[in-house]
Design a protein around this nucleic acid. Sequence first.
DNA 1: TAAACAATCCACGAAAAGGGGGATTTCATA
DNA 2: TATGAAATCCCCCTTTTCGTGGATTGTTTA
Lengths: 205, 205
Amino acid sequence: MIRILIVEDHPAMVEGLRKILSESDEITTLDVATNASKCMAHVKGYTYDVILLDIMLPGSNGLDLCSEIIKVNPEAKILALSTYNQRYYIETMLQNGAKGYLLKNNSKEVILHAIKTVHAGNTFLCEEVKRILRQHSDHSLALSRREIEVLRLIADGLTNKEIADKLFISPLTVDSHRKNLIIKLGAKNTASLIKIAMSEGFVSV
Amino acid sequence: MIRILIVEDHPAMVEGLRKILSESDEITTLDVATNASKCMAHVKGYTYDVILLDIMLPGSNGLDLCSEIIKVNPEAKILALSTYNQRYYIETMLQNGAKGYLLKNNSKEVILHAIKTVHAGNTFLCEEVKRILRQHSDHSLALSRREIEVLRLIADGLTNKEIADKLFISPLTVDSHRKNLIIKLGAKNTASLIKIAMSEGFVSV
DNA sequence: TAAACAATCCACGAAAAGGGGGATTTCATA
DNA sequence: TATGAAATCCCCCTTTTCGTGGATTGTTTA
């Protein structure tokens, strides 16, 4: 029996998952957590076979929560389940230790198959996610830590000078980062840079 | 018996809604549509008591679909059901004829109550949506048609001159729109303008 | 019908960003 | 230990945006 923890804050979604999971006699939904702290409380008290983890949670996000869970239990088999198909989310989730990434528009069959795959110790990515990861895997989309930091400050409306003051570096350095960001994300200027950054999930709404 | 059409493309969500609705003996789920064209086919062939309409649909969006449905049946009682709490979505949905707006994080009780309220001919907005509509209702967030048009072109990386050429107006006019947009949305510059615009839903990802 | 708003256009100067270079240091890792 | 990437800093010149002010012509609508 595969024992599941569902981490999800939409009641209707929880009902649906419960229903779908109950149709398989290999799977049982043991617990449901509707936010990060409840999730951690469950994870600290019990070892689940698979954790179904949503990305958007009230007051926190699944990306950080994933790291937290892995810190407590490095063996945890986390399957991300999200509406969001942003590349950054997918990559960060996998970097943070998730064993799979599943979009919510998948059928019940795919959902069940994903859970079984992850439980068996393998990685599961749904088709659309695979496609997204293939896309521009050539044109270097990998942003450095500092670049992401600068990017978010730009999105908040700070100028090169203001960012420089905040990070204790030269405005010229910030300008270099900005130019590199524009090139890396294939933007035309700062405006489209922000649009792309948000589409990819680097900057959250 | 309140006859429902669910327009939603996440199988698990559909299952959950079916389950929740089936718990009320006043409500029955007659049909499910997973995209806009299937929805229109259903709406043209039958008159539902309430239509539960998701905003994010494959290849189209609930905003336009709402107008389409109202065009076919001006009496349709549409209840928007969405993850998205962007002000623009809420306002546009209501302008386009929806009778209610419900966020997916609401409990089954609220969902059932919303359906009954809309069916009874009243408007239903969940608490968070009411709160969002109250916020900055003072500071004029209403953008004109032209402003939204210009805003989206700015987000795509076009300069004032390029936008001017595209819209057959003077670059100075575009500049005026840009400045007004920055003031109206309370941005510091174009970068933060785009971030806010996307957060509010004026520009989609 | 007057007021309010949308959409258009303008001027001037300051500030910021963009384009195209180049360079050094540090740090991880292959 | 050499290679490469990340992070830092620099120059020159052009283009674009920003901040301040305006003004006119329509079209709703209270």
